[in-house]
Design a protein around this nucleic acid. Sequence first.
DNA 1: CAAAAAATAATCAAAAATAATCATGAATTT
DNA 2: AAATTCATGATTATTTTTGATTATTTTTTG
Lengths: 260, 260
Amino acid sequence: MLEIQRQQRLLDILEEKKFATVAQLTELLHSSEATIRRDLVKLDKQNKITRVHGGAKVLTSASGADNEAARPTLASPTNSAKTPQQINRALAQKAAALCEDGESVIINGGMITDLMGDFLRERKLNILTNSFALAHDLVTNSRNQVSLPGGEVYREQGIVLSAFDNDTTQHYSASKMFIGTPGLSEFGVTESDALLVRAEQKMRRQAEKLVVLAPSTSLEKRSSFIFCSLNQIDILITERSTDNALLQRYRQHGLEIVLV
Amino acid sequence: MLEIQRQQRLLDILEEKKFATVAQLTELLHSSEATIRRDLVKLDKQNKITRVHGGAKVLTSASGADNEAARPTLASPTNSAKTPQQINRALAQKAAALCEDGESVIINGGMITDLMGDFLRERKLNILTNSFALAHDLVTNSRNQVSLPGGEVYREQGIVLSAFDNDTTQHYSASKMFIGTPGLSEFGVTESDALLVRAEQKMRRQAEKLVVLAPSTSLEKRSSFIFCSLNQIDILITERSTDNALLQRYRQHGLEIVLV
DNA sequence: CAAAAAATAATCAAAAATAATCATGAATTT
DNA sequence: AAATTCATGATTATTTTTGATTATTTTTTG
């Protein structure tokens, strides 16, 4: 069996069962413990699963006190009072896990998406970002290929922004674009700055799929300028705690919802 | 069987099965492992599949398009043991002193010019630079307005470089462009990397005057590619110790010489 | 708290897969 | 037709992966 096939099966099994012991996986995949462990180490480094003593579990919202799930149990961790930062990190982690090595992606600069850097350390992606902060982080602390659009560096926001159309973004082709949002509603994704929206739309055109990272606090909020409508979103990453009726309404616009 | 036919079959099979081992493909296509591998290498280079140990898999999505085209092999500046950091710093300091607050300048990325950051701390210039390192320095430690051309970040050289023409450099207008050089001779300023020269010339077109920073060790040296001829230089900053006859020769090309 | 149990990490040799090299023969050029 | 290129398959190093073995660490339990 191919290594990646085994790893894919592993991910599938974990997605299905949420937790599995090394022994179980060894049994299911007809492989040795050593091999399974090595696979788990790799997947963990890629932030696709979380290794725990005794086996591995699916990603749960970033770390915290998960003591409750130390042993093989099916119960999912009680999603109790997380700080906004923890929530954002969890969203960023899940977003990073959606990327496969070798893939070309666009990451829009922003509070939430900048956190993706932490989860892309061991990866090998081609990344275009207008976040000066994230670019610096990735150039310094990872082996990912990093590209920047041209433009002026805005200190406060930590982004690179150009008022012109020709800024090399147009030469980039990506499979996914990631964007964190302060406002998601029936109007779609909204922003408070027009120039920013322009730049984002420019990037959007170069990506096949749009992935939106939205903490529950941003749901049903809106700002002045519309970046895109709901049905232009391909994947929405948000919190598990989100009201189900609301998610259902969003789903009607044909977007896939990933919960953390 | 024709090579392209086989490769097409290969793509079809992979599209169908998502993964396949070399052994499987050998079986299906009645070919040798060597041939299959060679095909896979080619298809991988074309970004049509992804090779993995043991076989190959389909691309996750249409990410492709990043080419791998001619990554420039920027030569390391001939680090003459005689050129102490102090000389370079003196050159950089003088260069910084030539700028007036409010002025727009272009600073080419390089060992010498990157040092200008130290002397621009308290200044208020509009600076376009393709040096990722300098840009980060200035953004972090000064109040200067900083702009970047678009492109890929090259870790080793710490610069941003684009293979395309449209990278916002063209929208910039500057009074001076600063460039440090590893080679200045009768041929003018020479560089060892063609792509770099291209980027530099692109910037040159946007600046009124060209200021060259040249330690004495770089004088009468040359590399393969000509960035500009001597008479296209407006100001040459070099060391006071430089042979006078030599300076006189340079002056005949109409350039102003500043000594440190 | 310490011993026992369980799980993990480190090490190493065998196996598997890949890369490099070479000879052969078909296709192309001259 | 001879020369040359080129794809192919066989052969051989070289590298990577794997499972067994052995420390080492972590967790449990008395």
